[in-house]
Amino acid sequence: MRRIGKAWACALVVAALFAMGASAQAKWTIGMSQCNLGEPWRVQMNADIKGEADKHPEIKMVFKDAQNDTLIQRSHVEEFISAKVNLIIISPKEAQPLAEPVSKAMAAGIPVIVLDRDIIGENYTQFIGADNKKIGKAVGEWLVRKYGGKGATIVELMGLQTSTPGQDRHNGFIEAIRGSDLKVIFQADCKWLEPDARKEMESALARYKRIDVVYGHNDPSAHGAFLAAQSVGREKGMAFVGIDSLPHEGIAYVKQGILTATFQYPTGGDVAVVEALKVLGGQKVAKRIVLGSRIFTADNVAAGGEPLK
């Protein structure tokens, strides 16, 4: 028992030393709570935040990963409050359960920037995010411009349909192609997973002789579909379109000629740091920032894509 007590004491001393060493130089500490680092897109968000923050020696970032657990993320906010950070950036897992801890932080005088997913109520400093429905709609409109009049059959490989991004990317798309001669002939919930997308695409290929377009709700799904089509020699003349445009995924696939186009879903990580500095400097910031999106195709990928109107 005494030995265990000693071990605890040692651990406490070490932790205290770490804490002291950490708060040595920077003027401001920003706490960042990420809901799930299991997703490459969120890894990219943290990388974008870090990339921008490294340019500013006056701030120090503290990153936390909630591993897709709402209650862990809740305790992140509480930990940041008791550590008296100067600002909190949170990319919340869920809208409802995180509203309360965020408003507690606001009450404690700590500004909060909400990134990507919104929370219920308006009790935060700023929301930064992109609009999935708009991007889904942009995909549809782009395809209508490309295929309208000629007609096209579409396979839709959907993101998790119990999640808002999955629903929005579907609804926006359907809205855009309604009334045109583009038709969705096969759709499946691939839950954002590439192996699932490949399997579903194989089924679609077995069932339909003519497939013109594959719309993947994320780039890995479109990539998986490409591999399925390629293995039966049917990828030529088929258009593969995805969303997200991560540098190591969608953009790389466009460069390799695998995807026809990818629509960016920006992380907003860099924007969040810039806005955080404004807040810390005492400037007034907009309540909501809706991030613009870009499209990358073979023609413009070298030039960094084109902004969507």
């Binding site: 680092l37 299991g38 490459p40 890894v43 540098p247 190591h248 995924e249 790389a252």
Partner: peptide
């Protein structure tokens, strides 16, 4: 697996 890769997918890129 996450430590080895830094959380990113390992591709030819």
């Amino acid at each position: 697996a996450k430590y080895i890769t830094g959380g990113k997918k390992i591709s030819t890129y």
